[in-house]
Write a protein that binds this DNA or RNA. Structure first.
Ligand SMILES: NC(=O)c1ccc[n+]([C@@H]2O[C@H](COP(=O)([O-])OP(=O)(O)OC[C@H]3O[C@@H](n4cnc5c(N)ncnc54)[C@H](O)[C@@H]3O)[C@@H](O)[C@H]2O)c1
Ligand SMILES: NC(=O)c1ccc[n+]([C@@H]2O[C@H](COP(=O)([O-])OP(=O)(O)OC[C@H]3O[C@@H](n4cnc5c(N)ncnc54)[C@H](O)[C@@H]3O)[C@@H](O)[C@H]2O)c1
Lengths: 223, 223
DNA sequence: GTGTAATCGAGAAAAATTTATCGATAAAAA
DNA sequence: TTTTTATCGATAAATTTTTCTCGATTACAC
């Protein structure tokens, strides 16, 4: 039987898995060795069947009445995402956000490492941030090719994003993690992941607003 | 007929609306006054009926054969989210990420403003970042109450997140925008919006991996 | 004026995702 | 050993979200 390359994993599942992973890492720290979906569900406020289904995508099998071994489960998620072999990435735009990303150690857990930064501001070029050198943007294409880098992070202002993306793609980059609030056009085969923080903010504020309104509404009805 | 407070707006819609907003702002810059869903759909790679449905939630009505007036549409989204009146927020954890958030001007578009920061590191307390003072964490509860701040941003390490959240909630904060990879437990009535960057990263890397595998797979089949 | 084409709104259909159900299994208790 | 209980995997049902369809409306060309 052919083990077909699973092409259809629900994106919500993909988004929940790293959350489970963080949670399980904490469990391990506390010394817990075994955990059930019921237990996870209680802590993460999710339904056990959904968690089971999500975890099943990583190929793990649980034991009835017991659950899963935390360590095995962690390994299963790591393998699923391929976090064992490191993805090296270039970042463009060593401003406030760019520096925060460069300096952040937490990404190593996800097999991700920014190995060089690029900018076009002369006063920034040449600096070293957390051991990562800032190079002139003009070098990105040739360096991408030479170092076979496949992932690029965009942390420039929005107006520069498209241009930067095109340089990355010209260098052979296939995945772009974009922090600029801009619509990037890319050819098929290049994946653009937009990290628009304002989206989360808007959702938070709207939910808060709705909560307040429903509270007011309830009060008025009660009168 | 009672205009019930709409409590059930699909979250995907909520997440797409700020994207439309950014896009429309760009259109306005370019001098475009009118736009149809067909047009938006082409640029944003979304289906026109979905866009129409999303926009309808803000209460706007379009004109057949024409579309929407860009300016009116922008206003409609602004009103929907309440971006006219500013939400003031406190931020805790003036590290790399915290500083980037404090310094970012882009949030003003969404009626959001960080008016003070808090930290527990003596060398950071007392600093001023982009006109925002960093105060000792111990003061957060009383200041929240005094200034009637309802939104808090957490940019501390994960291990401090729960404790910080509790101080915020004790001060009356109702919405928490959490950047720490931690599960925050909060009572009902408090909204926690997790901004876990690693999630987006994991999705990107996995999609890339799947793309490569399907490519390899296709090549093998072709042999 | 009249015809044509583009777009809208509303509602139906389809697809994806979440939630519930049920028999099976393994551990712990009786 | 037998019973009870918790949990799993698989499948079915429900819900949510996306996509499609269709009649109505309006601008523009003729
Ligand atoms: N700082 C935040 O909290 C935050 C939040 C949400 C989104 N963003 C987005 O992230 C991006 C970066 O934000 P920031 O606050 O770090 O801005 P910033 O101004 O601090 O940094 C931008 C950097 O990009 C560089 N740059 C500008 N044009 C360039 C070009 N054409 N090529 C290469 N480098 C170029 C600048 O020299 C600067 O170093 C922006 O698009 C912003 O909208 C930032
Ligand atoms: N930097 C990034 O790119 C990035 C990316 C993803 C997630 N995050 C998350 O954002 C958070 C902050 O990251 P960072 O890179 O800014 O870290 P950082 O170490 O630069 O900053 C953390 C700040 O929090 C303060 N702090 C620590 N404990 C505190 C407490 N109990 N009360 C108040 N302040 C306290 C520290 O003094 C420091 O100023 C972390 O949870 C991190 O995992 C950061």
């Amino acid at each position: 039987m052919i083990s077909k390359p699973e092409l259809s994993i629900p994106e919500p599942t993909l988004r929940r898995l790293p959350r489970y992973y963080n949670y399980l890492k904490e469990l391990l720290k506390v010394g817990r060795e075994i955990v059930s979906c019921t237990h996870i569900g209680k802590d993460l406020d999710l339904d056990p069947p959904q968690i089971r289904k999500d975890l099943a995508f990583t190929g793990i099998r649980g034991v009835p009445k017991v659950g899963y071994q935390v360590e095995v489960l962690l390994k299963s998620i790591e393998d699923f995402f391929g976090w064992n072999n490191i993805d090296e990435a270039f970042l463009v735009g060593a401003g406030n956000m760019g520096r925060a990303l460069i300096g952040y150690q937490g990404f190593s857990r996800y097999g991700f490492k920014i190995i060089a930064a690029f900018d076009n501001a002369p006063e920034i070029i040449g600096q070293t941030i957390n051991g990562v050198e800032v190079l002139p943007l003009s070098k990105i294409k040739s360096l991408c090719k030479r170092m076979n880098v496949k992932i690029g992070v965009i942390a420039t202002p929005a107006h520069a994003a498209q241009e930067v993306a095109e340089m990355m793609i010209a260098g052979g980059i296939r995945g772009i993690w974009n922090f600029a609030p801009a619509e990037i056009r890319a050819p098929e085969g290049v994946i653009v992941q937009n990290e628009n923080l304002a989206t989360g903010l808007a959702v938070l504020c709207k939910k808060l607003q709705m909560l307040q309104q429903s509270g007011k509404f309830r009060q008025e009805v009660e009168k």
